[in-house]
Nucleic acid binder design. Sequence first.
DNA 1: ACAGGTTAGTCAATCGATTAAACTGATTGT
DNA 2: ACAATCAGTTTAATCGATTGACTAACCTGT
Lengths: 353, 353
Amino acid sequence: MNRRVTLRNVAEEVGVTVATASMALRAHPRISSATTARILEAAERLGYIYNRAAANLRQTRSSLVAVCVSDLSNPVFNEFLVHLEDELRAHGKQVFLGIARDDLTLQRQFLQTALEQGVGGLLLLAVRGTTRAELSGLWPEGQPKPLVPTVLFSRALDDVALPQFINDDVEAGRLAAQCLIDHGHRRLAWVGGGQQTSTARNRQAGAELAIAAAGLPPPELLHGPTLRQFGLEVAHQLLARPEAPERPTGAICFSDLIAFGLVAGIMQSNTDPASSLSVIGCDDMEEARFSYPPLTTIAVDKASIGRLAAQSLLDPDARPEQVLLPPRLVLRATVGRPRTDAPLSHFLHHFST
Amino acid sequence: MNRRVTLRNVAEEVGVTVATASMALRAHPRISSATTARILEAAERLGYIYNRAAANLRQTRSSLVAVCVSDLSNPVFNEFLVHLEDELRAHGKQVFLGIARDDLTLQRQFLQTALEQGVGGLLLLAVRGTTRAELSGLWPEGQPKPLVPTVLFSRALDDVALPQFINDDVEAGRLAAQCLIDHGHRRLAWVGGGQQTSTARNRQAGAELAIAAAGLPPPELLHGPTLRQFGLEVAHQLLARPEAPERPTGAICFSDLIAFGLVAGIMQSNTDPASSLSVIGCDDMEEARFSYPPLTTIAVDKASIGRLAAQSLLDPDARPEQVLLPPRLVLRATVGRPRTDAPLSHFLHHFST
DNA sequence: ACAGGTTAGTCAATCGATTAAACTGATTGT
DNA sequence: ACAATCAGTTTAATCGATTGACTAACCTGT
């Protein structure tokens, strides 16, 4: 790799000093427009490439922003990423991406690397199990602030005083449960997400709240990984049971991803969610509109979360508060009324609609 | 932001020079182990953070690798990204990510930024419409090599002498068409992808080849964007037609994403692909196994493409060749035998299986 | 004609780390 | 006993750009 063209080369070509060339490129008023033009022309002609790292070194600031997501295998994180990237680019920032693959060690390593790389900020969707102590590389104990400005999104960390842009997950869980309750369901199940992320805890808590408020028995808890496969297994397991009262008539899924699996499993059993086991998801991934049957779900405002988080990162006066974004019910086709227990209903069903 | 701890601080703390500290941190044999230990301890205690940018400046090499993808809204690009990132991390490289959002200008800007950032390499999944000239910032005309080592993946650029790791898309198209032909289909449609990417061109060409070889009439071409929405519209449009001979019985989709839309549209019309309009996709996205009905598709070896591309980038002796990875047919449930034209077949169908 | 003010640059230090070369003592060989 | 060797560390230059201080040339007004 033959050494690249530097400012020195450009300056020599024109017959000025490096300082002049530097100022010219940034349109400093001290440099006459004639000289500036000559420098610009020479830079172009020689194929000069600005060395941002060198500039950052001197300026001790950076145009790189680290974005660390826990996992990209769930497409919903992608949707956050796109909005984040969009907003950052609009402010002249570049993304230094880390994918932690749901692994605390990888997350810690990435945070370290990002710091070494000299990023000017960090947007973090923390891996499950992340605690204040886990962030000590980024924010040594006892310091008033982290080493670089940091904003959390999508998942809350309650014991960390940072700006956080989070979906109102309690409300999301409540909306999901209420939707099933409003359709007449009385035996519900919670499918997915254990207790390791704020998202899962809060959504489950919200669902339980709504169920209790309606005077119904607590939901059956079917905790498991956020994978389509898990939803599929749950579907087969539930449908293998005899109906009432052993089998719930509605499932509240922690995430759309699980809901898709659940729906697929139900369809494979030659029935459909609305008539045998209503399913409601949460996230409203793009796919939800197009899967069959279209998924009823709770929409998370991914665009606002992404944009606001990025804006907050770039705002020096941002307050370290948790901001909750409201979710929204999106009715599609996977929630129906529970079958009555009348003996003929099962038979009749096949001929309806 | 209070200034961070530098090597100088560490050195002063221990009472040695910066040079000694630098060498100690990299375990240089010239430094006694006693001194090394003291320096390591002080670095740890003071919270020293290595400044990679400064080091790179001196060494004129970089641990950053730019990865530019045309679009992340198609989850399949994600799957590439994950494997790429994996392999790069294994070699101590970090990802500097760009999402070009299918826009040549954004791609050009990102390439420029990556160069300015001083990346040591570039992995590129080029936006459609990318030509040799579009890469002139990265590879000025007349130069024997690009300014930084570059490897293409997933989409080929035929007039560019770079290592390229690509799915054998002609073969993929052929396999897809052959699958439908083997199931007895004779009137086929090609859905999606125009002529702007090598992927689309080659897959379509492969399909046409297989169709011609079987002595069948050329497929109806339904070009359109790679979106679920487009597949959905095509489904409604096709099913609105009377059957034979106006309506194809099998659709070869450029991408799984389109196939999902098509399948959803077919299901919405109260029928299913296997019995009314067989659908075969291409990519084998994770979702394909779990959507309902599970999608028959051509699997692209995303893991190999990602890994090999990353390895090639890091290999100084890599040859600028196009490497074609073999695709594989994955039979699931969206391809069936075409209905015979016997008058009763439609009626009988409802009572079969 | 000369103090004071612009204008258009140049100088030199600097950011934080790396590295070739030089420099100390201490040890070894003859 | 004196040069040669060697381990361990320091010195100083360097990477490429930025920036505050400084200067030379040219005006301007009285």
